[in-house]
Amino acid sequence: MYIKKLLLLIAVIGLIVGGLFAYFVYQAVFSPNTNFETETTTVYIPSGTTYSELRGIIYPLIKNTSSFDKIASKKGYTNKVKAGRYILKKGLNNNELVDLLRSKNTPIQLSFNNQERLENLAGRIAQQIEADSVSLLNAFKDEAFVKEKGFTIDNALAMYIPNKYEFFWNTSAEQFRSRMLKEYNRFWNDERKEKAKNIGLTFNEVTTVASIVQKETAKVDERPRVAGVYMNRYKNGWKLDADPTVIYALKKHKNDWDIVIKRVLYKDLELDSPYNTYKYKELPPGPITMPDISSIDAVLNYEKHDYYFFVANVENFGYHKFAKTLAQHGRNKKQYVDWINKQGVNR
């Protein structure tokens, strides 16, 4: 009788212990363990993060840190922390949290446009991925890479086609650069290559002309016409006489890229710079800004016409008045000069 009671007691204790063990296992593995009120929160884990460092990132977002540590250890995550961007959902349990941190690096939508120099591009990209602006700029200006891929430091900006791209946040500078080269080669498809050949420009020259068009007009529908003016001048051996190239030359000469120049003066046209298209017939050494795809395509599909001149249209702001002769242009220009003088714009 005593033995039966003892066995029954042991069985009851076993059930209790087993139940408690199962409860604690359930709590550790399957019970919700998040500590934030929003539906989701985003975690960024830098490259090279150790599990000890991860604790500083993840602990504020979970309720029971010790249970998380146990599951992370059981699943081998403590020795294999993975960098990336992770979106945690409210109410996840430890098992789900660890699985998410192991395998669900969520990409970002990266975008850039209208960057004036490689330095500006590096700063813009550094705001969106893990790589810092210094490492990005070093990658962009790597002379061996630039030369191997058929660019120069002056025209290397042409390799970066402005658009929206999907990237992992923990992308390195070199990985970003390599991806952009692939996108550049994809952009210059057979159709665009043929069009560039037909107008007698290299890909980089197309981008350089497009950068001038980009600066001249913000109106997408007007860009093919503006491009047509510059192509008329270029094909007939004229200087491009483009104010935006003078402004770029001035900024470069002064090494002041924040200066705002609203009006080009006659004395500015004398600046001796390969970017000054009032002084030299050749195209500038590279783009004066990052042109939109619409500007590049505007050059490749420039409007065929007999216009050689244009000036801002003060009767339809944002657009321009085009002229075939210097006399007609002189009348249009006078209207613009009179207007700008009334505005008191001296620089």
Rank of each mutant, 00 (worst) to 15 (best):
L157R: 04
Y160E: 06
T152K: 05
T152I: 03
Y160R: 13
F151E: 15
D142R: 12
L201N: 03
F187W: 02
K141W: 01
G150A: 05
Y165N: 05
S172E: 13
I161D: 10
I161H: 14
Y165I: 06
A173M: 11
T202E: 10
E143W: 07
F145H: 02
E143Y: 09
E194W: 01
N163T: 12
N170G: 14
I153G: 13
E166G: 06
A210S: 11
E205G: 00
K164E: 14
S211P: 11
T208D: 04
D154G: 04
T202L: 12
K164V: 00
F176S: 13
N189W: 01
K182Q: 09
T171E: 05
W188Y: 08
A210E: 09
V209R: 09
I199F: 05
L201Q: 13
T202M: 13
K164M: 09
I161E: 13
K164P: 11
I199K: 08
V146N: 07
E191L: 09
P162Q: 02
S172C: 15
N155Y: 07
A144E: 15
F187Q: 10
V209Y: 07
Q175M: 01
A173Q: 12
K197A: 14
N204F: 00
F187R: 08
A156W: 01
F151H: 00
G200T: 02
L181D: 15
Y160W: 10
T152F: 02
A156Q: 02
L157K: 09
T202V: 11
M180H: 15
I153D: 15
A158R: 03
P162E: 01
I199H: 06
R192D: 07
S178V: 00
N189I: 02
G200S: 03
K182R: 12
A156N: 01
S178G: 05
E183Y: 04
E143D: 09
W188F: 07
K147Y: 03
M180P: 15
L181I: 00
D190T: 07
E166Y: 10
W169E: 10
A173R: 14
S211R: 07
L157A: 01
K141S: 04
A173Y: 08
D154F: 01
T208M: 00
N185M: 13
Y165F: 08
A144N: 15
F167G: 02
F187M: 00
N170R: 00
T152C: 03
S211D: 03
T202W: 10
K197P: 07
K195D: 11
E143V: 03
N198S: 11
K193M: 12
V146S: 08
W188A: 10
Y184G: 04
T171I: 10
T152W: 01
S178P: 00
